[in-house]
Amino acid sequence: MAGAVVDGRPDYEQIRRMVDSVVPFNNHVGVRVTEVGHARAVAEVADRPEMRNHLGTVHAGALFLAAEVACAGAFSGAVATRIADVQSFVLRESRVAFLRPATGRIRATGTLDEQVIAAILAKIPSDSGQERHELSGKALLHDDADTLVGKIDFDYVCWFKSA
């Protein structure tokens, strides 16, 4: 991700732009990344008719995608100083709890476990040429009234090439 780090510090706005544009499906659906920081990001689902189900509420698939995009953004922000070494970042498992019918614009805030991120960033590269890490993320979904409408836990596996 060119330009992710400037003078040794993460350029979170550049990372946000890249995360927001890199996956064609996210762009097709219209999930937008609005914020990226260290181990935290926000993605939004616009209030559009095509994002709704037959009951007029936001489709579960759109909610899930926004949550996953937010956590992927959080990962990108968290590992910004090593982003060029990321070989793969794969969702392995998720647990979903939809708490209320979701209506209007939805905001997903994704976060990652700071201790795991610190361990990944501090890891001494191995001789194998590749590092494998497991980490978890959590996304909270809120509507325009700031009502919590869902929460999703994610388990990921990522691989870094050794420096």
Rank of each mutant, 00 (worst) to 15 (best):
A84F: 07
A43K: 04
V90G: 02
A66I: 05
A39P: 04
L121V: 00
N27D: 15
T147G: 10
T81V: 15
T111L: 10
T103F: 10
E35N: 09
A39L: 02
R105P: 08
G61T: 04
A66Q: 00
S128P: 00
G56P: 00
A122N: 04
V29T: 15
D144K: 08
F154Q: 07
A108W: 01
N26D: 14
I106E: 02
D7K: 06
S162F: 09
K123V: 04
R9V: 15
D146S: 09
L91V: 05
A46P: 15
A80R: 02
G3V: 13
V90D: 08
H38S: 05
L63A: 01
R105Y: 05
H38K: 11
A97N: 13
V90W: 05
V116I: 13
L91T: 03
G8M: 08
G150F: 02
A60W: 03
R100D: 10
V23D: 14
D7I: 03
A2L: 11
M51K: 07
I117H: 00
E68I: 07
D85R: 14
S94G: 02
K123F: 09
H38A: 15
G56C: 00
A46Q: 10
A78F: 08
E114F: 07
V86S: 05
E131P: 06
G37Y: 00
D113N: 09
L112F: 11
R48M: 10
E131F: 03
N27E: 12
Y156R: 01
L140H: 11
Q14L: 12
F154W: 06
P49E: 03
R132C: 08
G110A: 04
G56H: 04
E114R: 12
L135C: 01
G73E: 05
A39Y: 07
A108N: 02
I83P: 09
G137L: 01
A80W: 04
N27I: 10
S128L: 11
F25P: 02
T111S: 14
V116Y: 01
K138C: 06
D146Y: 06
V86E: 02
A70L: 08
D113G: 02
G61Y: 04
V69Q: 10
L140D: 13
A74F: 03
A41V: 00
M51F: 06
V36S: 02
I117N: 04
N27S: 15
I106W: 00
E44R: 11
G3W: 09
A2G: 12
D127I: 12
A139G: 00
G73H: 07
L63Q: 07
